[in-house]
Amino acid sequence: MEQKIPTMAEMAAEGKEPEILFWVGCAGSFDERAQKITRDICKILQHVGISYAVLGAEESCTGDPAKRAGNEFLFQMQAMTNIEVLNGYNVKKIVTGCPHCFNTIANEYPGLGGKYEVIHHTQLIQGLINDGKLKAEGGESFKGRRITFHDPCYLGRGNNVYEAPRAALEILDTELVEMKRCKSNGLCCGAGGGQMFKEPEPGKKDINMERMVDVLETKAQIVASACPFCMTMMSDGVKHMDKDQEIKVLDIAEITARANGL
């Protein structure tokens, strides 16, 4: 990274409070593919000059996978510990790099004492575009390229965010093609509800391979997503179909960063 990533601890030591906390999430912190997206989100924040910070090693899992898998104890332990840290830093606004973190902090933390304004990174990007702070210039051109967007369940159906990621693509003058199952009808990638961490139950095929049928039907060159779990599942699906040369799976943040030469 060209610029140092600021942490809440450092800022607090200097007596400063950032405008927004970037909640990176476990995948964004540890998964190599997702790490790249994390850095792109930071680049976007730096590019538009928003004062932000991350928790760094003070961040911990939101507890989402535990909650969906039925372990409410573990979820609430995680949640309350995180809320203590967030409230300790007087956090007001949070942007997340993951729809699962976004959903959990926005909807399930308030009841446990963690009340913040929470947005997903696609909403941040949409807001910046609307305010004229973010354009698509100085970088790679996506003009006329066939892109399809895979709706993450916890962004789409879970929270009714369908337009923000599409707004980030529309500004690129791409050829946006929708899959047969999209928006509120979108098909899950197969990783939610704790499935990311276990083998699927016996069946005819894996869910991400079912999703590949929709992807191939669009003849898209790029599958855009906005979730680290979907990223893993879609990338695996494309590889499994031997299509990783023709079809690229990219996060909305990566596409935005590239289009702006970040």
Partner: peptide
Amino acid sequence: NMFGNMENNGAPWKYSQADRFNWA
């Protein structure tokens, strides 16, 4: 296993909490 990882390292995978900021 995932629960155990989360309890011990604050992440669903077996990574150390101390390495959480290495991406930077």
